[in-house]
Design a protein around this nucleic acid. Structure first.
Length: 473
RNA sequence: GGUGCCGUACCCAAGUGGUAAGGGACAGGUCUGCAAAACCUCUAUUCACCGGUUCGAAUCCGGUCGGCACCUCCA
C-alpha cells in the first residue's frame, strides 16, 4: 500500500513520491542543547521515529539528518535576552562546550531510552559555520541581503514566495505586536543571517566572517547543513508545528533564494503535547522530563506507548492518569508477549492468510498519514483473535514492533532477587497455608507487602515480585 | 488584529458522508482459603449546541457557545 503523508505545504494528505526511487532524504530539526528535553519535545522526536520506521518498513533507504543547535539562539526575553547556551553555561558554572556536550548526551540518553533510532547523521551547528558563511555569500551574490547596523539581513522582499508554507499574508501580520522591531530592518519580517553587533555583552561564541567577527543567525544552520548532507532538493523536512510561521518559513526563503530550486518536497509537522492548562513549557509549571517520569515509576516506553495512542497531528493532552493508562496497557501487552512466548516458544516463520491480513491492515493505517492509534488497535484485535495460533500472533507482534518500537522482542521475565528475610517470611506463610492457618498466612502476606514485595499464589507455587513505586498523584 | 486547530463515554483517543476503533478505569462473572494475576462480559440510540444540504451527517455548509496553539527562542 502506498505511503501517504500530510504535507503542510499543500495542507493535504499526498502520496509520498521520493526524488530517487527507494531512497528517502529526511531532515529533522533537532534540539538546542542548553537544557534537558521535556516530554513535549520528545513527542516530536517520537513521531519522527515512527515516520522513519514506516519509511524503512516500506523499503526506503532513509538518510536521516538532524542538527544539534549549540549556538545562536536568544533566550525568551526578546531583544534584551541572552544566548541560551551562554546563559546556561554561566548559571551552571561550566563552559559552553561542556554544556553542549552534557545536554547532547542527555538528549540521546532520552531518545535511546524511548527506542528512537539515532539519525544517520547528527551535526553540530558549531562544526558548520563555514558552510553557513558560504550560504550567506551565495545569498549576498544574488542580492538577497543587506547590511545594516553591522548585521547581515535577509530581505524577504527579494523572495516573492515568502510565507507560502505558513500561508502568511505579510501585510496582515502585526509585526512587533509582541517584540520590539529591530530598527535596522527594511521589512519587519526580515531576519538576521549574520550578527556582528551582539545584542548582549561578552558574546563568547564568535567566528571570523567576511562581514566581521560574529555569529550566525537563528535559521541559517538548518539550511546549510541540510543542503550539505541531503542536497539542494530533498524529500522530507520535519519538526514541531511551532516552526511553521518563522523558522521553516525563513529556512525556505534563504535556501530557495540561494539555490533557485525547490528545497523540500514534503513538510511534516507534529502537533504539541499539552496539559490541562495548555502548552507545556520549560519556564512555567512542572518541567516534565523523561528522568522525572522514571523517578515516578514509569518506564520510558510507557511514554512512547502513550504518544502512540494519539495521532501526531492532534494535540495530545498529558495527565498522570493518561500516562497510567498507557503504562497499564503497555505492561499488559508485554505480559501477552511473554505468555505467547511461553506457549509458542518461537514465532511462526510463515503467516496464514488471516495473519497477513492483520499486518496489511496494520501497515495500511501507518501508511495512511501515520495513524498509529489505529495501528495499535489492530494489535489488540489480533491478540483477541481465536483463529490465530500463538506462534503466529508472536510473529505478527514482532513484525508490528519494527515500527511501534516497544521492544517487544526483548521482553523477558523479570528476575527478582528476594532478600533472605523476605524469603523466610514467604516460607513461614507457606507452612501456615499448609496448616490452613489462614489468619496467620494473611498476616504474613501483609508484612511481606509492607517490605515491598507482593505475593501471588499460583498452581506452580507462590510467586514473589517487587512492588513498583506507586505513582498515582 | 491575523493564521490554524479542537470540542466523541468516567479518563485518554481513533474515525471526516453509509449507520460510533482501541486502551485505561469502573462494575459483574470464571478461578481462588483469601488476595493477586489471567480470562470473559458489560459501559455513547449517540459524537458541544442550533439550523441547512443529503436517501443517509460525528463526518459537508452556515451560525452560536467553549477550549487551545501560533504570529517571540520554543517540539
Amino acid at each position: 500500500m502506498q505511503l501517504s503523508l500530510y504535507n503542510t505545504l499543500n495542507r493535504k494528505v499526498e502520496p509520498f513520491i521520493p526524488i530517487e526511487e527507494g531512497k528517502a532524504l529526511m531532515y529533522c530539526c533537532g534540539p538546542t542543547v542548553y537544557n534537558y528535553a521535556h516530554i513535549g519535545n520528545l513527542r516530536t522526536y517520537l513521531f519522527e521515529d515512527i515516520l522513519r520506521r514506516t519509511l524503512e518498513y516500506n523499503g526506503y533507504d532513509v538518510r536521516h539528518v538532524m542538527n544539534i543547535t549549540d549556538v545562536g539562539h536568544l533566550s525568551d526575553d526578546g531583544d534584551e535576552g541572552e544566548d541560551k547556551m551562554v546563559k546556561s553555561a554561566r548559571e551552571k558554572g561550566k563552559t559552553i562546550t561542556e554544556i553542549a556536550d552534557m545536554y547532547t548526551q542527555a538528549f540521546f540518553q532520552d531518545t535511546d531510552a524511548l527506542n528512537i533510532l539515532r539519525p544517520t547523521i547528527s551535526c553540530k551547528a558549531t562544526d558548520h559555520v563555514t558552510d553557513m558563511i558560504a550560504l550567506i555569500e551565495r545569498l549576498e551574490a544574488k542580492g538577497h541581503t543587506y547590511t545594516a547596523g553591522g548585521n547581515v539581513y535577509f530581505s524577504i522582499d527579494t523572495f516573492p514566495r515568502y510565507g507560502e508554507l505558513a500561508r502568511l499574508k505579510v501585510e496582515d501580520l502585526q509585526a512587533g505586536a509582541r517584540i520590539v522591531v529591530d530598527p535596522n530592518k527594511r521589512n519587519p519580517m526580515d531576519f538576521v543571517l549574520w550578527f556582528t553587533q551582539s545584542k548582549f555583552a561578552n558574546q563568547a561564541m564568535v567566528w571570523p566572517s567576511p562581514w566581521g567577527v560574529g555569529y550566525p543567525g537563528w535559521h541559517i544552520e538548518c539550511s546549510a547543513m541540510s543542503i550539505k548532507y541531503l542536497g539542494e532538493t530533498f524529500d522530507l523536512h520535519c519538526g514541531g508545528i511551532d516552526h511553521i510561521p518563522v523558522h521553516h518559513t525563513n529556512e525556505i526563503a534563504q535556501s530557495e533564494a540561494a539555490t533557485g530550486k525547490r528545497w523540500v518536497n514534503y513538510w511534516i509537522h507534529g502537533e504539541f503535547l499539552i496539559n490541562e492548562t495548555g502548552k507545556l513549557s520549560k519556564s512555567k509549571g512542572e518541567f516534565l522530563t523523561l528522568s522525572y517520569l522514571k523517578e515516578r515509576g514509569y518506564h520510558p516506553l510507557d511514554y512512547r506507548y502513550f504518544c502512540l495512542g494519539g495521532h501526531y497531528r492532534s494535540q495530545l493532552v498529558f495527565s498522570w492518569q493518561a500516562l497510567d493508562s498507557a503504562k497499564s496497557a503497555r505492561e499488559r501487552l508485554v505480559k501477552q508477549v511473554l505468555a505467547l512466548k511461553g506457549e509458542a516458544g518461537s514465532p511462526s516463520l510463515t503467516l496464514s492468510e488471516g495473519g497477513r491480513s492483520y499486518i496489511e491492515t496494520f501497515i495500511g493505517h501507518l501508511n495512511n498519514d501515520l495513524n498509529a492509534p489505529r495501528a495499535l488497535a489492530t494489535i489488540w484485535t489480533l491478540l483477541k483473535d481465536e483463529e490465530l495460533a500463538s506462534d503466529e500472533k508472536l510473529a505478527l507482534l514482532y513484525e508490528a514492533d519494527k515500527i511501534l518500537g516497544l521492544g517487544l522482542k526483548d521482553v523477558k521475565e523479570e528476575i527478582v532477587v528476594i532478600p533472605e528475610e523476605v524469603q523466610a517470611l514467604v516460607d513461614q506463610r507457606l507452612e501456615a497455608k499448609a496448616a490452613k492457618e489462614w489468619a496467620k498466612a494473611d498476616e504474613l502476606r501483609v508484612i511481606v507487602e509492607e517490605m515491598g514485595y507482593s505475593l501471588k499464589d499460583t498452581s506452580e507455587g507462590t510467586i514473589v515480585t517487587k512492588i513498583c513505586n506507586q505513582n498515582s498523584r
